[in-house]
């Protein structure tokens, strides 16, 4: 009898709950409804948007760091990414970014200069014409996206390790850090051993033509031993550094080494 006094006379309990659920944000509502189910509890653990379950996230972060170390350990600098004949090239090669092609950087090749900084002897900037004069090689390799799809393409450019030697980079440094012209400022760190890999390339051409806007004009870093997001496009600067400066996707949770 005493319990009854808590209820508002004339109000249906179930309708009241229904109405209050409606005022919750959509995601909370769904989780509230799924509440109790172990799966619901698991999705809470990941808490990317609503609830921060710091212990689970911290654990995953630590394992990801451990995975960085494991990948660096098994990385063999002499292991080459498989190369393919021209007939294997994927046509059309997909454009992929976190924005539409219309929003892709529209870089003016005449004004563009590659800034070089950090632990290097010669910090002079490079114009596109100067870079085009460096010896170039072509390689047909498979681009593998973090999403799972892959495509085979033909990239032409200067091996990054030759360029690093040319500018007198301290190759004992830990990273080469790239900044790009993408909106929101794309950037990505590349560990030095991958930067010195024979197939890692400063790319100026796709399929024998000047790199089109969709694929990163004027310069892309092609790293066939890394997932696609570690192959920055529209590069504007590179810095040789011992500091881990993070990256656009790396900071959001993609594994930083992401080597293949």
């Amino acid at each position: 009898m005493a319990k009854r006094s808590f209820l508002i006379p004339g109000v249906d309990k179930r309708l009241l709950i229904k109405d209050s659920i409606k005022t919750m944000p959509d995601v909370t509502r769904r989780r509230f409804i799924a509440g109790g189910a172990s799966l619901g509890a698991l999705t809470l653990l990941t808490g990317c948007d609503v609830i921060d379950s710091s212990s689970a996230e911290e654990m995953l972060k630590q394992v990801s760091k451990f995975n960085d170390a494991v990948q660096a350990f098994i990385f063999n600098p002499d292991a080459l990414a498989p190369t393919f004949p021209e007939s294997a090239i994927t046509k059309p090669f997909p454009f992929n970014a976190y924005y539409d092609l219309d929003d892709a950087p529209d870089v003016d090749g005449k004004d563009w200069k590659l800034e070089v900084g950090g632990l290097v002897d010669n910090k002079k900037s490079w114009t596109l014409d100067e870079l085009y004069k460096l010896p170039q090689v072509t390689q047909i390799t498979r681009h593998i996206c973090v999403e799972g799809w892959s495509a085979i393409g033909s990239w032409t450019g200067t091996p990054l390790r030759d360029f690093l030697k040319l500018i007198g980079a301290d190759t004992r440094a830990k990273y080469v850090w790239f900044q790009c012209a993408d909106k929101d400022g794309y950037n990505s760190p590349l560990d030095m051993r991958s930067a010195l890999h024979p197939q890692t390339q400063m790319t100026f051409k796709y399929a024998g033509e000047i790199l089109p806007r969709a694929y990163g004009f004027p310069m892309k870093i092609r790293v066939p031993t890394k997932l696609g997001f570690k192959n920055p496009k529209y590069v504007v600067s590179m810095e040789v550094t011992n500091d881990y400066k993070g990256g656009y996707w790396e900071d959001q949770g993609y594994n930083s080494f992401s080597g293949s």
Binding site: T46, G47, C48, L60, K61, V63, S64, E147, G253, N255
Partner: peptide
């Protein structure tokens, strides 16, 4: 989406490459 883990691709990958061990 209700039957996936991680909230988004990055979270799913973190779980996948942790649980794989």
């Amino acid at each position: 989406r209700e039957y996936t883990l991680g909230g988004w691709l990055g979270g799913g990958l973190l779980w996948h490459f942790a649980a794989m061990w």
